[in-house]
Nucleic acid binder design. Structure first.
Lengths: 230, 230
DNA sequence: GTCTATATACGGATAGAC
DNA sequence: GTCTATCCGTATATAGAC
């Protein structure tokens, strides 16, 4: 699968995500018209990602956000009750989206070699699709409340566990070499993360996400597969 | 080489680094007694790294720093003229230390296979030795002035270029496979970085830096070396 | 050299007009 | 639903005593 195919399968639009946010937080949101709320949430989230990308969420003042989103300070507070809550909302919506996508992609293949490639590439494609969120979450992890931080770490562990399970199952089936699968999984995750952490580098070089995935898969396969399978 | 051996070769102490900072910035520092200045710079840097690790440099107030370093607000400003300058000083001293160490480790070996392993492991050992600085610099990159950011990116490119050169030279000598060496170098750097970015994860698992380096080298060698050399 | 006290600006958040 | 004006806490930085 390449990125274009991935995008066709995942149909989540930005609008859908914002509608979900609206519905989930309806009790605390002062705005009653769904259409208005969804439209403005889109503006707000885009603005948060844009400003936070360059200076971080802490350094972003509500006045910055107000300017970038095109809403007054007063209006902003109709959509959330505090800056901290805004951070929470962004975290939750992102996690829920990711869970949805990852579930769609698990257990579609059985053979460990294919499952490994599918798991590795799906995660990179997902991080490409929601790159602002992935970058934001990595960089702002330190600002999260205890609960939110734990939820983020659970996600991290979960995706690593998926890789470890595939590697172990593959070893049993004789497809993969034995080894420290936990550490291998961590290194794979490090490579996946680099794609969204170093956007500036890869953009400058015109490396496409498909180029990147292809190279990561080559790298991973050469290490994990039994020599007889190469 | 393992980490213990690396540490014996690199003798830079924290005190040496602080003395260098003092001498380089002597004109702008109000404190005249070297001994006092060096001692307090040590306290200040430790405090900055500690607080920034948990909440970031922006979120660290000068009052936080004052408490943690055990110096009053007024005293702090005897050592630098603004919070921004403090950031600059930390950047400069770190870069100068790293350059010194990396130069010590280049061109000590000739054979590309060994050079690759030496370059990969030296960088991880260095990041272990100066982990607070590496983590700080990665996370605070967005807060740097244009000049400082460029200097940091030059360092990033330089260390990547070193890897690319080794890979190209090795390909010519028939030791390494052909391939997109630039992309390979980026993936290697991603693995090197994970060691200091995910400290919490590796500490929790009791993964030592030597375990980590060994595994990265296995991974890298399986991909880069010609099959006949395995 | 270091302290306390303070000037000044900017932050998040809200009240009340429209 | 959105705006403007404003409250009030906290930030950086400095002045002046010791």
């Amino acid at each position: 699968m390449n990125y274009a195919e991935f995008q066709k399968i995942i149909t989540d639009s930005k609008e859908d995500v914002c509608r979900e946010v609206y519905i989930e937080n309806q009790d605390r949101i002062k705005i009653k018209k769904e259409k208005t709320a969804v439209k403005n949430f889109e503006k707000i989230f885009d603005a948060v990602f844009k400003i936070s990308y360059s200076k971080g969420f802490q350094a972003m003042s509500m006045r910055d956000l107000s300017n970038e989103a095109g809403l007054s300070m007063g209006a902003l507070y109709g959509y959330f009750t505090s800056k901290e809550e805004l951070l929470k909302i962004i975290q939750r919506q992102g996690r829920s989206m990711i869970r949805r996508v990852l579930i769609d992609f698990t257990d579609t293949v059985d053979e460990p070699g294919h499952r490994l490639c599918a798991a590795v590439s799906a995660h990179i494609y997902l991080s490409e699709m929601a790159r602002p969120w992935f970058f934001f979450t990595f960089m702002e992890a330190r600002n999260l409340s205890k609960e939110e931080l734990e939820a983020a770490q659970v996600m991290e562990s979960y995706t690593e566990d998926v890789l470890v399970n595939i590697l172990e199952e593959g070893e049993i089936q004789g497809v993969f070499k034995p080894g420290n699968h936990r550490l291998t999984a961590s290194l794979i995750k490090a490579m996946q993360q680099d794609w969204y952490l170093k956007r500036w580098k890869y953009s400058k070089r015109n490396t496409s996400v498909d180029d990147y995935v292809t190279h990561v898969l080559l790298f991973v396969k050469s290490f994990c597969f039994n020599d007889s399978m190469n």
